[in-house]
């Protein structure tokens, strides 16, 4: 009694294996991992018809032709650049962040950060429809309430400067984190210039 069942299952499995997927009308497909600007190469796992293939090298393309046949082979960087030229050109600017430093106990920038403003603002202005987050921080000199107020004043100072550059105020979020997120961990009541900062994130 057992044998015929097993035979049936085997027959059914064999039947499945023998029927190749007919995709005579499908468009050819191609996927390739490319290096990040930093040179980092990641990975993509391609799953198809029960199979799995890991692509973890740059410029190795997995192709599926119109008949459904899969081929994985190196592709030149030039070919990828050519095929995807318009596509890659349309990638939005990469999210970035900038840090500006402040004088002790004040919402006034350090001379070094003042000098850096043009560069940072230039980066922000170049982006279409930027979404900007401005977060103010302090060092641990003073109590919580004082530092909450000071960190917000720093963030709003930067926010006002950005609005002055004609960046729509609705696209800028600002907040103060007081002495809760120290860049350099210190004891309480320690003056630390690197903690007196505003972090600007843009995407």
């Amino acid at each position: 009694m057992r044998l015929p069942v097993a035979a049936l299952v085997l027959a059914a499995l064999a039947g499945c294996a023998e029927a190749p997927p007919k995709k005579a009308t499908a468009a050819p497909e191609m996927v390739a991992v490319v290096p990040a600007p930093t040179g980092h190469v990641g990975a993509v796992v391609v799953r198809s018809g029960g199979g799995e293939q890991v692509l973890d090298q740059a410029y190795v393309a997995r192709r599926v032709n119109a008949e459904g046949t899969v081929e994985t082979a190196p592709v030149t960087r030039e070919a990828v650049d050519e095929i995807f030229a318009e596509t890659v050109k349309a990638l939005p600017g990469r999210p970035a962040s900038f840090t500006l430093y402040f004088l002790e106990g004040k919402d006034e920038l350090t001379p070094a950060s003042k000098a850096e403003l043009d560069k940072v603002f230039g980066e922000l202005r170049r982006r279409p429809a930027p979404d900007i987050q401005v977060i103010g921080h302090t060092d641990t000199v003073g109590n919580l309430a004082f530092n909450d107020k000071l960190s917000l004043a720093r963030a709003e100072r930067v926010r006002d400067m950005l609005v002055g550059l004609d960046i729509e105020s609705q696209r800028i979020q600002s907040a103060g984190r007081g002495k809760r997120e120290l860049l350099v961990p210190t004891d309480d009541n320690v003056a630390e210039p690197r903690n007196r900062r505003v972090e600007i994130s843009v995407r």
Partner: peptide, 8 residues
């Protein structure tokens, strides 16, 4: 699994 790839 990260990070950059192209598909056609």
């Amino acid at each position: 699994r990260g990070t950059e790839f192209v598909v056609a």
